[in-house]
Design a protein around this nucleic acid. Structure first.
Lengths: 140, 140
DNA sequence: GTAGTTATTGTAAAAACTTGCAATAAGGAA
DNA sequence: TTCCTTATTGCAAGTTTTTACAATAACTAC
């Protein structure tokens, strides 16, 4: 239960509070690792914290994403999913079968630099999902 | 009204049909140019074609996107929007004020090549939205 | 500890989006 | 033209996501 308390100082420093709801949701994200839909997070977190509601899950996931603790990503069906922020990577999803692989962030870094210098924008770097056809589907 | 009939052959060739609904929606997309939410498309297309329904708008937008005639893009609020497919470009959206600029596709091409060779995936290239902080917001 | 401030939650309802299925109508063939 | 096939639509209901606001509880200061 207290395994996510390491986030407390980070929240406090920004004027936010740690709550059982945030603990439970962070715990689910950390435990699962992969992309989770809000509904999946809700279902799993509800087991740890009966009484938790869906609006709280949606708000908390967005909150965690704003803080950079969770990373949002769009699934093949266009729906938003989340995963715990860890090693910085992106995704490449197969348009046919939905299989996905991770894309190292370093591959994108020079592109971001280029965009920054040509556009004047700063802090470019949010999570990006690419779509393509995976090797398996290329044979079918 | 017939200004979108140029799409007819392309639909036919794939076994699809041109309908007044698709005409109206294509017309709205072409006339507006910028990103439109499904609700906005519905409101505008309804004026051209009374009786049009929302499910049809959602289905048609997805259909046009699948065919490459419309390009989906995620707005700052995470909601899906569409624009008519024309010159191939991407978007860079300011996380603060929502302002956006276009990013030439050519900037991404070498990245796509790299992804293809390292991942084995093919046909990488769907539309990507980047987020950053625009020059104006950097001063505030 | 107790009290005060206010971030956060739950509730209830609305808005946005999706789905199944029967009815319609687009396009091909006679 | 008329008939036939089936892609596409509208309807109705469902699911997902968001919002407003009053109640709660996390943290601070005393």
């Amino acid at each position: 239960m207290s395994c996510s308390s390491e986030y407390v100082p980070q929240l406090r420093a920004l004027g936010y509070r740690m709550t059982p709801q945030r603990m439970a949701i962070l715990h689910v994200l950390r435990h699962e690792g992969t992309h989770l839909s809000p509904a999946e997070v809700y279902k799993k977190a509800l087991l740890e914290l009966p009484g938790l509601t869906e609006p709280t899950v949606y708000r908390t996931l967005e909150f965690l994403a704003d803080l950079g603790l969770a990373r949002p990503a769009y699934a093949t069906n266009g729906r938003l999913t989340y995963e715990i922020a860890g090693n910085d990577h992106h995704h490449l999803v197969c348009k046919h079968c939905g299989d996905e692989i991770e894309v190292e962030h370093t591959l994108l870094e020079s592109l971001y630099r280029l965009l920054e210098t040509t556009s004047g924008y700063r802090s470019i770097g949010s999570h990006v999902t690419f779509f393509g056809i995976c090797p398996k589907c290329q044979k079918n």
